[in-house]
């Protein structure tokens, strides 16, 4: 039994969130293929739209990381499009967001976590990178500083993954519960309950609008925080 009452049981030998992730990837690949099929210097239609979104992402990456941001464009674009499409997929009846499963969001957060440290070591060298973990404190405090920084670093993927997971699961459960209320109230034969069924019927479109907003904002937040983390790792610390 799925946590979301609205969702369909797919009866697969593996977790159905993998199917949803695969669908998401397939959809992104299809849209990219359609959008880039007829490339022209003056973009129109799908190409124009995709270039507009990518332009915004690139601009943000440039603002936050600086000139070396170019190298990380694909990572940020991947995070944004995957999370956005996956979030919005949950609004289609019968499908659900793969980001409403903790395994997917933890996977995404792990990608950010490991790439942060990989790029940090690669850009600044392992010595300088390890040095910034010990902070600007006296020698006797350095072990504590290392532990504190370690806990802070480990808390990042935790907060990243749980926020995305919580927001999207809440949206899915809320939509599912409203759907179930209509299903329970309408055929009940009781006039009061049938009138009450109007409330979720009116509420549901509004929650779907809210869901679209949350989907876009969460995809954006995840991408921006990935930029903040990777930017912090690859740039030389000035304050210390």
């Amino acid at each position: 039994m799925s946590a979301v009452p609205e969702s369909v049981e797919f009866h697969l030998p593996f977790d159905s969130s993998i199917l949803m992730s695969a669908l998401t990837v397939g959809l992104i690949a299809l849209v990219s293929w359609v959008g880039t099929r007829k490339l022209s210097m003056i973009p129109r239609g799908g190409q124009n739209f995709l270039e507009w979104i990518l332009g915004i992402i690139y601009q943000f990456a440039d603002d936050m990381i600086g000139p070396q941001a170019r190298r990380y464009y694909p990572l940020f674009a991947m995070l944004f499009f995957f999370i956005l499409v996956s979030n919005l997929m949950g609004l289609i009846p019968g499908l659900f967001s793969s980001t409403s499963r903790l395994s997917t969001t933890v996977g995404l957060a792990m990608v950010v976590f490991f790439s942060t440290h990989y790029f940090g070591i690669k850009e600044r060298g392992i010595g300088a990178y390890i040095k910034h973990w010990f902070g600007p404190v006296p020698v006797w405090l350095k072990p504590f500083m290392f532990l504190i920084e370690l806990i802070g670093e480990l808390a990042r993927p935790l907060s990243l993954s749980f926020r995305l997971f919580g927001n999207i699961l809440a949206k899915e459960i809320l939509l599912g519960v409203l759907c179930m209320l209509v299903v329970i109230f309408l055929p009940s034969g009781n006039i009061i309950q049938q009138v009450l069924a109007l409330v979720p019927l009116i509420l549901r479109p509004l929650i779907i609008l809210l869901g679209i907003l949350v989907s876009i904002i969460q995809a954006f937040v995840f991408m921006i925080l990935a930029m903040v983390y990777i930017g912090g790792a690859v740039q030389a610390q000035e304050g210390h």
Binding site: D63, L154, A155, L158, F162, I224, V228
Partner: peptide, 20 residues
Amino acid sequence: IRQLWQASMAGIMLAACIFV
């Protein structure tokens, strides 16, 4: 914008750090 997102992280980071 960067400050805005970072500020939104402050509360959740406090909880997440204690949890970790």
